[in-house]
Simulated scan of single mutants.
Amino acid sequence: MTALTGLTRLAVTDGSGIDGGLYRRVVGWADAAPHWFNRLVEAWTLLGLGLFALLMLAAWWRARGDGPAVMARVLASPLIVLVAYAVNSGIKGLVEEVRPCAQLRVRDTLETCPGAGDWSFPSNHTVIAFAAAAALWFADRRIGAVAAVAAVLMGASRVWVGVHYPHDVLVGALVGVLVAVPLALAAGAAGPLVERARTGPLRPLLGEGPRAVSARAGRPVGARQD
C-alpha cells in the first residue's frame, strides 16, 4: 500500500500527473457544455445512487418467483455494497489523495470542491455503483445490465463535475467489482436458508419460488436462473 500511496501522490505532484491533463480537458468540456446538460449531470451525480436501490428492489420483486440462490444473491446485494464501501474507505484513508480541483487549483467546477481531508482516491460513488452493478449481475442479468450502464455514467459524472481524477474512477470501478464478484458468488450458497425461510412467516417477502409455483400450476419446475 506504501507503493500505491507514493504512486498516487506522484501522479498529482507536478500539476498534470498521469491523467491531470485529461481531467482538465473534461472539466473544460463541462464548462462549454449546455446549461441544461450540466444540470442533468449534477442531478445524476447527486441523486443517481438512489437508482441502484430501486434496481435492488426490482431484482427482489423478480426473484420472488426464482430459485433460492437468486433470492439469496439479491438479499446480499446491499450488504455487498456496504462491504465495498468499507474497503474503499480504508484505501482512501491510507492513500490520502487530494481532490483534483484543489490540487490543480481548478475554479468553477460544477460541484463545489470538497474541503481538506475529503480524499479523492478511489471514488466512493463509483465503488458503490460498480459493486451494486456486479452484485445485481449475478442475481438478474437484465437488471444487472441496466445497473452496469448506470455505473459507467455515475463514474463519468464524477470527473465531469470536477471532483475526481479519471484514475480515481477507474480504480473505484475495479475495487467495486473485485469486492462484489466473490461475495455475490458466495451468497448463492445461502440458497438453502432462503428455501427454508420460504416455508415460514417470511414467505410473503421471499416468494414461493419456482418449485411451488410450478407445482401449483402443474408445470415442470424451471427457474429463470439459479
Rank of each mutant, 00 (worst) to 15 (best):
R198W: 09
G144Q: 07
V95G: 11
H164N: 13
W44V: 11
R219Y: 08
L75T: 06
D66V: 05
A84M: 07
A11G: 15
L185F: 08
L79Y: 03
A217K: 13
E96W: 03
D140M: 04
E42N: 08
M71H: 03
H167C: 06
V41G: 02
F52Q: 08
E97D: 10
Y165K: 09
I128R: 03
L82H: 02
R211L: 14
S89G: 12
P182Q: 00
L79Q: 04
D19G: 02
M154E: 07
Q225S: 14
V171Y: 08
W119I: 11
P182M: 12
R64H: 02
V70W: 01
W44A: 00
V83H: 03
A148M: 13
V152T: 09
R203V: 06
R141M: 09
V87D: 00
A72D: 01
F138W: 14
L178I: 08
V177I: 15
N38R: 06
G93T: 04
V87A: 00
Y85S: 10
P192M: 05
A58W: 13
D140C: 00
W61P: 01
L183P: 03
G6R: 09
A132Y: 06
V106T: 12
R25L: 15
L206S: 05
D118T: 11
S214L: 04
G144A: 07
R142F: 09
P192G: 09
P100H: 11
L193T: 09
W119T: 11
N88T: 00
R224M: 07
V163E: 01
V181P: 01
A139F: 06
G93M: 12
W29R: 01
G67N: 14
R105L: 10
L206H: 05
P68A: 15
R196S: 11
D14W: 07
A3E: 12
M56N: 06
L79F: 15
L4A: 15
G222N: 05
D31Q: 12
S120D: 07
A147P: 06
Q225N: 13
D66R: 07
L185I: 14
T2W: 05
F37Y: 09
A132T: 06
V152Q: 04
R99N: 10
A116T: 14
P34N: 08
S89D: 12
M1F: 09
G207V: 13
R73M: 05
L136V: 10
A116I: 14
E96G: 13
L205E: 08
L174I: 13
A187N: 06
R9N: 15
L94E: 11
L110N: 04
V127N: 04
V163L: 00
A63T: 06
F121C: 09
F121S: 01
F37L: 15
A148L: 14
A11Q: 08
L110Y: 05
H167L: 15
D168C: 00
V159F: 01
Y85C: 02
P78Y: 12
G67H: 02
M154H: 06
R158G: 09
G172I: 13
A139T: 08
V70D: 02
F130K: 00
L75A: 13
S77M: 02
S89V: 06
L47Y: 11
S123H: 08
M1D: 08
A189W: 10
M1N: 08
R224K: 05
Y165A: 11
